[in-house]
Nucleic acid binder design. Sequence first.
DNA 1: TCAAAAGTGTTGGCCCTACACCCATGC
DNA 2: GCATGGGTGTAGGGCCAACACTTTTGA
Lengths: 248, 248
Amino acid sequence: MEFNKIIEEKSAKAWDIYIPNLSVDCVVFGFHDVTLKVLVTRLKDKDLWALPGGYVLKTENLMEAANRILYSRTGAENIYLQEFKVFSELNRSGGVFDEFPDTLWNKQRFLSVGFYALVDFHQVNLVMDDISDACEWKSIEELPNFMMDHRSIFDKALITLRKQLNHKPIGYNLLPEKFTMPELQKLYEIILAKKLNRGNFYRKMLRYDILIKLDESRKGGAHKAPDLYQFDIEKYEKALKEGLNNGW
Amino acid sequence: MEFNKIIEEKSAKAWDIYIPNLSVDCVVFGFHDVTLKVLVTRLKDKDLWALPGGYVLKTENLMEAANRILYSRTGAENIYLQEFKVFSELNRSGGVFDEFPDTLWNKQRFLSVGFYALVDFHQVNLVMDDISDACEWKSIEELPNFMMDHRSIFDKALITLRKQLNHKPIGYNLLPEKFTMPELQKLYEIILAKKLNRGNFYRKMLRYDILIKLDESRKGGAHKAPDLYQFDIEKYEKALKEGLNNGW
DNA sequence: TCAAAAGTGTTGGCCCTACACCCATGC
DNA sequence: GCATGGGTGTAGGGCCAACACTTTTGA
């Protein structure tokens, strides 16, 4: 079915079950191939991309809404979610739905609550829905053309991620259970958008005492096989409470 | 006029001009008398206190709404505002309006956007409105009995303030233009809820190079007159961008 | 055997803690 | 002058950047 038809059909039901004027948009981060990636979908018949989003049922809170929306996209439950900002500008939609009647659900003014999500790349199975014809991971270096204000939602998510790096279990949620020190460093470098000194990063991480060194190493790559680590999640959470670079 | 009458009268108009299901609540911090204080109002005829709040006009964004709400309470413009969380639980109101008809504006389910505000205590003139019979500063040590979930909104605001102490111009917005080092330290100690070493605080602040030492001191108190300082706001803002305790 | 990556050692500087000392002020 | 609080000195330790060295691996 074509885009317009579907939109109009969904509209009637939406008024009954969702809270009006309110939406949720998710910036889903995944780490793979030494690259930080974001989940994006393409609107059917359009060359416009969108962040996965949805609306809030009258019977659920925001976190439940975000979880439901992401589950329908990724098949993953218990995803790490963090609200970061409400986008409330008057003209957010930029006239995308001008051609539709005013009673269309989508044509309302929406205030959108932005969440960022951290997922283990390998645990996700992307799911298409009926208003999109693509659902993909894109490197944050090569983002597509976003609809509405989704580009600024993404930007704000990344800035927030950077600021919270010392206060939220970001490494734990983005990396697979076992990982190497260079992989962890690369993740930090991408989020912070700056190079870090290898030896110093190594020792700093060890000094935090939040990692468990495993009796294995990552074979197969060229050159020396790096040791594998996993987070000592209890110590990690405890350290994060104070902030990894304890300020005061 | 009594509380119930006023509420019902305002309800009809509210449906026309505000976005439904959405409210704004503000935790307004002020620093005075070596104490961190919060602005609270008391509901007419009830022994329940509330944070100043309001609704979002169909023609304004969230920041404009918060500014309008605070202006009507304090007469102050350009207040420093920071959104920190949306409160979206299903039973937030706790049945406060059970006795009213279902068409009452206030009886809707509300998701409330929490802002904290930082104001210079001396620049504020408290204003009562027609559903409150008191509007006061209360020390954060002696908070009154809050209605609904306002206590947890306050708690979250304070925690957020603490976390952002190194990233937002909190000192600048809470203190008067000129202040002494002990005053600044006291502010930090209250927000962090811990004692700090005097000499080390003093030098750490100076090392940040964000303060301008003035050629005056605070006379009148007993004992030695402390020097007065003011923020070098340009350097302060610049330092905050990296975080005062630069992490990486 | 060689290049490249991973792990470890080393050094000097800065900041942090803790505590001590002196100075200014009002009683 | 004395108590109190504000400004400054100092010694020891830890973290940090920068760089060098060693080890391990696949080609």
